[in-house]
Write a protein that binds this DNA or RNA. Sequence first.
DNA 1: ATGAGTGCAAAGGCTTTGCATTAGG
DNA 2: CCTAATGCAAAGCCTTTGCACTCAT
Lengths: 149, 149
Amino acid sequence: MTGIDVHAEVSVLLRVAGQRYTPTRRQIIDALMSTRRPMTITDLLEALPDVAQSSLYRNLTTLEQGGVVSRVVSTGDTGRYELSEQLAGHHHHLVCSQCGAMRDVVIPESLETTLDDAFARVAKREGFRLEHHRLDLIGVCGECRNAQD
Amino acid sequence: MTGIDVHAEVSVLLRVAGQRYTPTRRQIIDALMSTRRPMTITDLLEALPDVAQSSLYRNLTTLEQGGVVSRVVSTGDTGRYELSEQLAGHHHHLVCSQCGAMRDVVIPESLETTLDDAFARVAKREGFRLEHHRLDLIGVCGECRNAQD
DNA sequence: ATGAGTGCAAAGGCTTTGCATTAGG
DNA sequence: CCTAATGCAAAGCCTTTGCACTCAT
């Protein structure tokens, strides 16, 4: 998806949610689009030095409620955000157990289908209405592997 | 795995880590064994009313470093802990998107094998040394479904 | 003009740390 | 005895909130 498409889509999503697409929000989206990994609050503050911390938090909340971004659960002590899957596509994460870095990763479509089928059965068995799944691959990233040599 | 086995195993793990298996730590393990879901700090404090909050945090850290318990990443604002997979066996979690509750769930062994194979390939492609995977099924639990009727 | 968005500072809430006391080997 | 573990209280850190100001419609 190109940047223009994303901005147009965000604009629609926010309008539906009764929210404006302000310059600050556009900057946040630009920052999130610029990388293939969830960004921490710190990352975002560094990328947007003119945005107050409180504004960042408030905008992220607004964007999340509008379905534009998603809060990513991570091991770290600070929150992480990414574009919602509606905008970025379905994906998973590689998580480095040493440095904590996260990176997006896509698994074969056939495997996703297998997973969806199996999970649907498990959810039914457990009396659970399944919405989606979250899958992280934990290991050691290339940089940390090199650093150990 | 029976309770006796778990305590014996914990004792060994802690000894290897150079740590003692104190009464407080045994109480924590008993609490974690009593339920099939990760417990929050609040849960544990309620289950162990005579244990100071700081002791709980410190013991959980010690137990985690010894490989006895695992910190579970969750959406909530407070930490969650469970017995390590070495003690509790490999499993995943059902996470309720409405009430935040988590519950253990096991998926078919054949699916785990399929996942492991596929993930190994993905990790290799990405220059990642895979350690394990984390899989959550997000949806609405039975209680919340009933509450909506 | 009228409500939303912003910045700054203060307050909140979970977690960690300091320090004196107690228990275990 | 000597180190580890505990309790209580204080400090830290990320996040949220209050309030006045500015911007957009």
